Computed example of a mutant assay.
Amino acid sequence: MTVSAAERRTRILQVVRDLGTVKVVDLATRLGIPAVTVRRDVAALADAGELARSHGSVALPDTGPQARPGRPDQVVGMLVPTVGSYFDEVIAGARAAAATAGARLVLGIAAYEARDDRAQVDRLLESGVDGLLLTPNWQPGDPPPRPGDQHWLAELPVPAVLVERKAAPGSPAAELDAVGSDHRHGVLLALRHLAALGHRTVLLAARADTWTAHQVRTGYTEGAPLLGLGTRPVIDMHRPGAPIAVPDPAWVAQQIAEAAADGVRAVLVHNDQDAIQLPPLLRNRGLRVPEDVALISYDDVFAALAAPPLTAVSPPKKAVGEAALDLLLRRLDGPPGLPASHLELLPALKVRTSCGGDGAAV
Score class of each variant (00 low, 15 high):
residue 237 M to E: 11
residue 237 M to R: 07
residue 238 H to T: 12
residue 239 R to S: 01
residue 241 G to K: 10
residue 242 A to G: 08
residue 242 A to C: 05
residue 242 A to Y: 09
residue 242 A to E: 07
residue 243 P to L: 12
residue 244 I to V: 15
residue 244 I to Q: 15
residue 244 I to K: 15
residue 244 I to M: 14
residue 245 A to G: 11
residue 246 V to T: 15
residue 246 V to N: 14
residue 247 P to N: 12
residue 247 P to E: 11
residue 247 P to D: 13
residue 248 D to Y: 11
residue 248 D to R: 12
residue 249 P to K: 10
residue 249 P to V: 08
residue 249 P to H: 10
residue 250 A to Y: 10
residue 251 W to D: 07
residue 251 W to P: 04
residue 251 W to L: 09
residue 252 V to A: 15
residue 252 V to C: 12
residue 253 A to E: 09
residue 253 A to R: 08
residue 253 A to Y: 09
residue 253 A to C: 09
residue 253 A to W: 09
residue 254 Q to F: 05
residue 255 Q to M: 05
residue 255 Q to N: 09
residue 256 I to V: 05
residue 256 I to K: 00
residue 257 A to V: 08
residue 258 E to H: 03
residue 259 A to E: 12
residue 260 A to L: 03
residue 261 A to T: 11
residue 261 A to Q: 14
residue 261 A to I: 05
residue 262 D to M: 07
residue 262 D to V: 00
residue 262 D to Q: 15
residue 262 D to Y: 04
residue 262 D to P: 02
residue 262 D to E: 15
residue 263 G to S: 08
residue 263 G to Y: 06
residue 263 G to P: 10
residue 264 V to P: 07
residue 264 V to A: 03
residue 265 R to P: 07
residue 265 R to S: 07
residue 265 R to M: 03
residue 266 A to D: 11
residue 266 A to G: 13
residue 266 A to K: 14
residue 269 V to N: 09
residue 271 N to M: 10
residue 272 D to Q: 11
residue 272 D to V: 09
residue 272 D to M: 11
residue 273 Q to C: 08
residue 273 Q to A: 14
residue 273 Q to S: 14
residue 274 D to I: 13
residue 275 A to N: 02
residue 275 A to K: 05
residue 276 I to S: 08
residue 277 Q to S: 07
residue 277 Q to E: 10
residue 277 Q to G: 00
residue 278 L to Y: 05
residue 278 L to M: 03
residue 279 P to K: 10
residue 280 P to T: 05
residue 280 P to R: 05
residue 280 P to A: 03
residue 281 L to E: 03
residue 281 L to Y: 04
residue 281 L to F: 01
residue 281 L to R: 05
residue 282 L to I: 02
residue 282 L to C: 03
residue 282 L to F: 02
residue 282 L to Y: 01
residue 282 L to S: 04
residue 283 R to A: 15
residue 283 R to V: 11
residue 284 N to T: 13
residue 285 R to E: 04
residue 287 L to G: 10
residue 287 L to M: 07
residue 287 L to A: 10
residue 288 R to T: 13
residue 289 V to S: 11
residue 289 V to L: 10
residue 289 V to D: 12
residue 290 P to L: 04
residue 290 P to F: 05
residue 290 P to S: 04
residue 290 P to I: 09
residue 290 P to D: 05
residue 290 P to G: 08
residue 290 P to H: 07
residue 291 E to N: 11
residue 291 E to I: 06
residue 291 E to K: 13
residue 291 E to F: 10
residue 291 E to T: 12
residue 292 D to C: 03
residue 292 D to G: 04
residue 292 D to I: 02
residue 293 V to N: 03
residue 293 V to M: 02
residue 294 A to K: 11
residue 294 A to R: 12
residue 295 L to G: 02
residue 295 L to P: 01
residue 296 I to M: 02
residue 296 I to W: 02
residue 297 S to A: 03
residue 297 S to C: 00
residue 297 S to Q: 02
residue 298 Y to R: 02
residue 298 Y to I: 00
residue 298 Y to H: 04
residue 298 Y to F: 12
residue 299 D to F: 01
residue 300 D to S: 02
residue 300 D to Y: 02
residue 300 D to L: 01
